[in-house]
Structures are given as structure tokens and as C-alpha cells.
Computed example of a mutant assay.
Amino acid sequence: MKRFRYFRFTLAAAGMALLALGGCTSRATKSGSAAEQDSVLQQTAFATDSIAFCEQKDSTLKCSVVVDYPSGDDSLSVGVRRYVAGELLHMYLPAMQEENGEAPVYKGSMADGKALVDFYGNMNNVYLKAQYAELKELGIAGLSYDLNIRKTYETDRYLTYETSCYVFLGGAHGSAVCRPVNIVKATGKVLAATVDTLKQKALQPILRRGVKEYISKAENRKIKDSDLQNMLFVEHGIIPLPTTVPVLTPEGLRFVYQQYEIGPYALGMVEFTVPYTDVKSCLTHEAAELALE
């Protein structure tokens, strides 16, 4: 069996794997009154088509890809298509091998969303079949690949998209990814930064509180500051900013840490949302303009 660059398999509690997935369920959150929200969306709604690829062979193999793909031809649609294509490539199983670089990639028109999704869906499915042929003699029950790239929210200034993926390729458990982004409507580009990284020290009380609240809820017990040192993979007690750029939401700034980023697999994907009143002094200028004005 080939080794993989992005998906690691280690022993951990299966229950927390489900918790990790639960933390990145696609959502469409609304703020303000229903009338206000409907009024905004009537003026700003970004049109997409839901495109799906799904192949399932009883309980042994499942490959599913679902994408909200832009149906327009304006510059924002072009930018979102570029983002979606990049995510499909980033989560492309054949390209995750050690021998990266040999896997074929989609070269068709980006205007044809179905062809794009079908290409990567079929290639991932072929890969699963080849892996299962090697592993079935070891008693592996089945392999799966479940990828969703969905639009979860929008305002008149930005869209929120979220990539959520769960892959099981054998071993003790599968691996999950939850990667939300904001896409600026005026430029069609992903918002590259929302937090001033030079203010990581100032953010420590906020990050520690968010992590404690997440763990307390997950474990149904109160977590103290002193508990974190033994629970997290952090140096000198400093919680880093997540590699996934925190995203703007109606409720505040949402932080998502990937598996293993600050703790063991059993910790799940730590996530929490901080009100803008607590973090506005740490926002980048562009993020503040999008979220607060």
C-alpha cells in the first residue's frame, strides 16, 4: 500500500472522529430578521448549481463529491470556479501519493462544472478501487471518499465557502478536513488574511478561552487553564493561530484547527467563534471593512 502525504492513520477514539466531522457540517447561517436577510439576498444572491458525483458499491466502496458551482459568467463566478477547481485538486487522492506529479489533472473548460466534478470524482473512484484490490485480503471492510465544497453564507460583500472531506483508506480510522474561506465579491479572490499575525500574543486569552469552551462541551466537563498544557501539542503554552485562515461569519470570527494541529486525533477539529467586539482590534484592515462596516 502506498503512503500518503496528507492523511495519517493513528490509534484514537472513534467517537471523537465523529465529533470532528460534526464540527464542520455545512451550514447556512442568517443574521438579522428574516425580512432583512431576504432583502439582502434578493439583491446579492450568488447563483450556483449543486453538482454531484456518487459511485457506491455495496459497503465496500463509496466515492462522493458535491460542489456548489457558479452558474454565472461574471468575474466573481470565474474567481469562485478557480477556487473550487483548486480545492478539487488539493483533495485529489492520486496527487496525494509520495510520487506526486504523475496524476492526470482536469484540462477542460472551467465553465463546464459537471465535467470538472465528474473528472475528479471518477479519478478518485478509480483510485479507491485500486487501493481496495490491494487491501481486501487484509480484511478491510471498505474504503470511502466524501468531499463537499459548498456555499454556506453570503452578504453583499463576501461569500463563505467550505470544503469538508472525510476519507477512509484503511487503518484505525479515517481522516477529516474542514476548511472554510471567505471570497470577496469585489475581487473574486479568497480573503488571504483576517487576523494580524503580529497580534498572536494579544490573542492568547481569546484562543485559550475558545479552546477550553470547545473541549468542555465535547467532554461535558469544565476544562481549566492548567489542563490545556497536558492536552495540547503546543510549545511554551502558546496556542498558534490556525493554518486555516479564520473566517468572517454573522456571529463573529470563526477559528478552525485541523486534526493534529494543536492536539491528538481524539481531540477532533477544535473550532469556536469569537464575537467581533472581542477581536476587532486584531482584524486586518480588509477583514474589518468586510465585517464591520
Rank of each mutant, 00 (worst) to 15 (best):
E271G: 15
A266L: 06
F272L: 04
P275Y: 10
L241P: 04
I223L: 08
I238P: 00
Q259L: 14
E271H: 15
F255M: 14
E271P: 03
V245A: 03
F255V: 07
Q229E: 14
T277V: 07
V256Q: 14
Y276F: 11
Q258T: 11
Y257D: 09
Q259F: 02
Y257P: 12
T249S: 13
P275W: 09
I239M: 06
M269Q: 14
V274G: 04
P240S: 08
I262Q: 05
G252K: 05
D225C: 11
I262T: 13
R254L: 03
H236R: 15
I223Y: 12
G237H: 07
D227W: 03
M231H: 01
Q229M: 04
P264C: 06
Y276L: 04
Y276A: 04
I239G: 08
I239D: 09
R254H: 14
Y260R: 15
P264F: 02
Y260M: 13
A266R: 12
N230G: 14
V274S: 04
D227C: 09
V270Q: 02
R254Y: 06
P242G: 07
V245E: 11
V234A: 04
V245F: 00
F255C: 09
R254T: 01
V247L: 01
P240I: 11
P240T: 11
I239P: 08
P275S: 07
A266N: 12
E251H: 01
N230P: 02
L241Q: 07
P242H: 08
Y265G: 01
E251A: 14
L241D: 04
E235N: 13
V270I: 15
G268V: 00
I262P: 03
P246S: 01
M231S: 04
V274A: 02
L248S: 01
M231V: 12
K224V: 13
V256E: 07
E251T: 09
V270S: 04
Q259M: 13
